[in-house]
Computed example of a mutant assay.
Amino acid sequence: MESTCIITFANQKGGVGKTTLCALFASYLVSRGHSVTVFDTDPQQSIVKKRTADTATYAGVPLPYNIYPFSMSNEPALIALIENLHNSAAVDFALFDSAGSLNDQALLALFANTDYLLTPFHYDNLTVPSTAIFVAMIVELRRSIGNAMKTVHYVIPNLEEQGVGTKEEKELWKLVNKKLSEHVRIAPTVYKRQTLRRFSTISGMDDQMLVVSPAFDHIYNDIFGIPNTEEE
Rank of each mutant, 00 (worst) to 15 (best):
S3I: 01
S3N: 14
T4E: 01
C5E: 07
T8A: 12
G14L: 05
G17E: 01
T20H: 05
L21F: 06
A26G: 15
A26N: 05
S27E: 14
Y28A: 06
V30N: 07
S31H: 10
S35A: 12
V36C: 07
T37F: 10
D40S: 06
D40M: 04
V48P: 02
K49R: 13
R51G: 01
A56Q: 14
A56E: 13
G60C: 13
P64V: 06
I67P: 05
Y68T: 03
S73I: 08
A77G: 08
L78H: 06
I79A: 07
A80S: 14
L85R: 09
L85W: 10
N87H: 15
A89H: 11
A94I: 02
D97S: 03
D97L: 01
S101H: 12
S101W: 00
N103T: 11
L107H: 00
A109R: 13
L110M: 08
L110Y: 02
L110H: 03
L110I: 05
F111M: 15
N113L: 00
N113W: 00
T114Y: 01
T114D: 01
D115F: 04
Y116S: 01
L117Y: 02
L118E: 02
N125S: 11
L126H: 08
L126F: 13
V128F: 05
T131H: 01
T131D: 04
A136L: 12
R142T: 08
M149E: 03
M149W: 02
H153D: 00
Y154V: 00
N158E: 07
E160S: 11
Q162I: 08
Q162P: 00
G163L: 01
G163V: 01
E171L: 09
L172G: 06
W173T: 12
N177T: 09
K178R: 15
K179P: 00
H183C: 10
H183S: 15
R185T: 06
P188V: 09
Y191S: 10
Y191F: 15
K192T: 05
K192R: 15
R193F: 07
R198Q: 14
F199M: 10
T201H: 09
G204P: 01
D206L: 14
Q208A: 14
A215I: 11
I219N: 00
T229Y: 08
T229S: 15
E232G: 13
